[in-house]
Design a protein around this nucleic acid. Structure first.
Lengths: 383, 383
DNA sequence: TCTAGATCATTCACACTCGAACATTTGAGG
DNA sequence: CCTCAAATGTTCGAGTGTGAATGATCTAGA
């Protein structure tokens, strides 16, 4: 391998097909890309990106423009405009982040919208109810929205009020990765969400099967996902008869924890004290940092401590690569659009659908094998 | 590297099938593999890996790229040629009754199957796990079933064992009006079910809004639906701050209750004692009989006692016509077939879907209007 | 409208990968 | 023990993907 790579953020080089896949993802997430930007992001030359764009344009998957590419447009006369676009409906989509997690959801939604011949308008928002509402209102005011897909902040009174407001909107609303709580009879709201509790349980069971008997949990309470992960962790511990007290459960978002390194040291100390040999770490960004910290401290992963991340955004980049629970992000977007399309087509007679999707557990190195065999005889070192 | 590391053909070299399995594992873990890397890891020559990749690519399990392989991609047009065989599938369907409730589910399933160009084979079964299994086995043996939609009995050890067996079947399985419990990690089972708890809650809230402050529940514990109805009733009482003790909750399936008339008299006596003016009656067959009984006893419905039935099979036949919660039976069948069709078309990559549908509340005469001025001494009747 | 700067297409070179033919090993059955 | 067939390894010429250089073309801004 040629190690004279220019500062490559992606760590490992991609195959051409993956590169084009990434390119399409970026395109669907942002609506347009620049050759320069993508080249830098993927760590290849601009020429390569141009070639990719040409290939994709030949298949009609993108429209070429000077300096980059956009989603296929009917204004692009180079393509064989064989289909009547006739956008029957327009859907607004408001998501809390355009950097993490959500680009893939958007990508799945865009792909499905294209199949269903729908127009989709995406807006990013802050992680708070007031801004959620502002963004939705903006879509309602300026565009002609027939339906809304949204992942609102649901915390506090503001969140509840927002839900009520959404429920009362005159257009159908689908929540993505959110559930309407039973306390609020938001009976018109449909949703599609990943069953994060199931995902966490799957991770715990996997670690149990690998031989771990003390399995901790490191979460980030600032994320809406976290409560579900913790719930799944609890349920799995109960099912496996692991006592809750004595199990490490730390929150990396608590302000009093000081610096991250300090907190990680604290967590490791707790692990040592309780005999914990495996950790489920929510947000695999955290997991990557945690593994790095462990390695720096001379701990072997997975020998001394096994790690499973949650989200699978960057888990594969770590060294060693981190096993992670992967929510079906593309499908969340896809199913949300399917729900919306069916609702728009069938109207009120269709019953309210609420859909949970199961995540997948991706096994990599960070959780392989039993917890450290203390005095394991040196096995043969063949070859 | 820890012991157990399969960096070499340690112990036993793998058979080709196992090797391809490993290859797919690595692929799932990292999204892509290099021929070189995988060859080194498995201790075989690169050519062997290339041959494996070709085999897997022919089956559409991977996409070939220069230097390795990736997960199947739509951008890979080598595979898209004649892949979708559109060979029509056959679906088996086993339901616990061909008289009550299920005919409409079957009707919805049949309609959707026709749209999707699927063949569907329906079998009735008894309400017990052993017969469920017999019927499913018969379908598997005699017909050529590509998928199974089933509403099994899930009670007791036999029910759990049945679920495990279904989960292990080599064909996709969709449960209808059943949920796989979290205790059993039946992770492959998908389902579509009515949210009966929501339906019961809707009924309670409706009665509350009509002015009732004591709302009882008459259930039939022999039905799998009943626990959910009771749960919804409980949750709604809690939300409305109606104390649970003092609320009438009777089970018409309990054997010691003697004849139906006797039991109904008992229930009415309880209502009188507790000041209950409204009842949610599960299975509207029961509701019809109960209304008849009330009328016979000279009680006015809804004047003296308001009734809401559950299921809406025959509720409209009573005199007066009974308000009832109507589960979206047609849609349960329809969505089950949709799930199955999508699963058969998309294969393993599709995440497991679990869908809840909301029922509808059909308002008729038996629950209209406020409770009448007390004939006997009653508790406070505000508003 | 014109100019400066950016973007694009073409060519060439290089390294790596692929596939075919042939050689070798492995395992099952006679 | 032998034979055959399937699986695997080796070699080598052809093919493929990538990047640098260069000149043509395009866009933005005055």
């Amino acid at each position: 391998m040629s190690p004279e790579q220019p500062a490559e953020p992606a760590g490992k080089s991609l195959f051409s097909l993956q590169r084009r896949e990434r390119l399409m993802e970026e395109l669907r997430a942002h609506g347009a890309i620049t050759v320069r930007g993508i080249a830098a992001k993927l760590g290849v030359s601009e020429l390569t990106i141009r070639r990719d764009v040409n290939i994709l344009a030949d298949e009609g998957l993108v429209s070429r423009v000077h300096g980059g590419a956009t989603l296929p447009s009917k204004l692009d006369r180079s393509t064989a405009a064989g289909r009547p676009p006739h956008h029957s409906y327009s859907i607004g989509m408001v998501v809390p982040s355009l950097d993490y997690y959500w680009p893939q959801v958007i990508s799945g939604a865009r792909a499905e919208a294209e199949d269903q011949n729908l127009r989709i308008l995406v807006r990013g928002s802050a992680y708070d109810a007031a801004d959620n509402r502002r963004q939705v209102q903006a879509l309602l005011d300026t565009q002609n929205i027939d339906g809304l897909i949204v992942a609102p902040d649901m915390t506090g009174d503001q969140g509840q009020e927002l839900l009520r407001w959404l429920n009362a909107l005159p257009i159908p609303v689908v929540l993505a990765e959110r559930r309407s709580p039973i306390e609020i009879p938001a009976h018109r709201l449909e949703w599609v969400a990943t069953d994060h509790a199931f995902g966490a349980g799957m991770a715990v069971r996997h670690l149990w099967q690998e031989g771990h008997r003390r399995i901790g949990c490191l979460t980030d309470s600032s994320s809406p996902t976290s409560p579900h992960v913790v719930r799944g962790w609890h349920q799995a511990l109960a099912a496996l008869k692991i006592p809750l007290e004595g199990s490490v459960h730390e929150d990396s978002a608590k302000p009093e924890n000081g610096g991250r390194a300090t907190h990680f040291d604290h967590v490791l100390a707790l692990c040592r004290k309780t005999g914990t040999t495996a950790m489920l770490v929510h947000s695999d960004t955290q997991a990557v940092a945690f593994v790095q910290h462990c390695v720096d401290k001379g701990l072997r992963v997975p020998g001394d401590i096994a790690i499973v991340g949650y989200d699978d955004e960057v888990a594969y980049l770590a060294e060693p690569a981190i096993s992670a629970v992967r929510p079906p992000k593309q499908y969340v977007g896809k199913v949300a659009v399917q729900l919306m399309a069916a609702r728009l087509a069938e109207g009120r007679m269709r019953p309210v659908h609420r859909i949970e999707l199961n995540p997948e557990l991706i096994l990599r190195e960070s959780s392989a094998g039993a917890p450290q065999a203390p005095a394991a005889g040196m096995l043969q070192v063949p070859q």
